[in-house]
Computed example of a mutant assay.
Amino acid sequence: MSALKDIYSPEFYDNLSDVLLITVPSFDKQKFVEKIFDEPFKTMELKERMRHTTRVLHEFMPADFGQAVKIIEKTIAEVRKKGGSEGGLAYIFLPDYIEMYGLEDYKNSVKALEFTTQFITCEYGIRPFIIHYFEPMMAQMLLWSKHQNHHVRRLATEGCRPRLPWAMALPELKKNPEKILPILENLKNDSSEYVRRSVANNLNDIAKDHPNIVLEIASKWKNNTKETDAIIKHGCRTLLKQGHPEILSHYGLDSEKITVSEFKIDTPEVKVPDALQFSFKVENKYEIPKIIRLEYGIYYNKANGLLSKKVFKISERMYQPKQKDLVIKKQSFKLITTKKFYSGLHKVSVIVNGEEKVIDEFQLIT
């Protein structure tokens, strides 16, 4: 299986160069390709290759950013004409170009972001503009929330997520998300699930710093439409995992008469990359049907010897009165590049409707 960075392949640059021959005046394909495939290229990771592509392209573009924007527009049109992939990740260097070389030209950059995001998302490239031009940029995003194109509407919410993964932080919006809320209000019943999903993710970001704001929105939007109910459910996922009392109450998730029994860790010693296996029985002892949200927590041993809990969802469904089910779960400890495991004591717990019912220990051997 090839690495993600390999989207920047000789074939990609060959096709891109053919497009740039059409859109960039006096473009030198051979020189461009030589500069791309310099000695450090082989060791570059995905983001480094993206930024490298941006910088090399800049050497062939007009110094005037307004003229460069026109070339970006022509390039996108030409890629589309040649059947290029809409939203193809390799083209993320286009919003990166706007971010790197357009920050001092607000007017042309806004135009470029609006156009480019309809081809490849500008959710990362827009963030420096939010920081440098906070008031006008947030006003622009509010306007975009009513744009006819769903990619632009999504940019209005995804671009201002306070905690967008792998993105530049937006401290102003983490501190006070007030400017985001009218955007979410405009998009809560959007016709595109792609957009509504972004609304939910934005709410989930806000909930990590301002749970009461999201709880208020949850109460306000409850039962408005099935779309808003779905947004709230996904947008409150962190609060649900945290067992926040108000959101549990919002969904009627109490656990007083829901029991967990016969909890057993089948693999008290787990050797990486094997899996932890455990089982338990859950029973609804109420006289009425109850929704049971089942989760489990893994307390990972960290480098400092402390335990850090991560919650995983098992299921959420209706249990009939006196219904009792056996649940068997596995948790992989397969090595991945984004996570490091440490030997020693770990714990696993079973969580029912936000309440940790049972917990026990196991040993991880790396």
Rank of each mutant, 00 (worst) to 15 (best):
E178A: 15
I328D: 05
A63V: 13
P162L: 09
P245W: 10
I76F: 10
A90S: 14
K111D: 15
E59A: 13
N15F: 03
I76S: 08
T338D: 01
R163K: 15
Y251V: 03
D266M: 14
H250M: 07
L89M: 14
I288W: 01
V195M: 02
K329R: 15
L155G: 09
C236V: 03
Q277I: 10
E86G: 02
Y286P: 08
Q323D: 14
P162N: 07
P182M: 02
E114L: 02
W166I: 12
Y91S: 04
E185N: 13
Q363F: 01
Q67G: 03
M138A: 05
K111G: 11
L326G: 02
P62R: 10
K340I: 03
T228R: 01
T267I: 06
K222Q: 12
W221A: 05
K264P: 00
L57S: 13
Q363W: 07
I130T: 11
P182E: 04
S145K: 03
I359V: 11
Y342L: 05
T366S: 12
N353P: 09
F134M: 08
L307Y: 04
V199H: 07
M137Y: 03
E158L: 10
R127S: 10
M1R: 12
F27Y: 06
P182S: 02
E123W: 08
V152N: 08
M1I: 07
A169V: 10
G243V: 08
A63C: 03
F341I: 01
R237T: 00
D229F: 00
V69S: 12
M318V: 13
N15L: 07
L113K: 10
E283W: 03
L142N: 09
N224M: 07
D28L: 08
G235K: 01
I131E: 15
D229M: 01
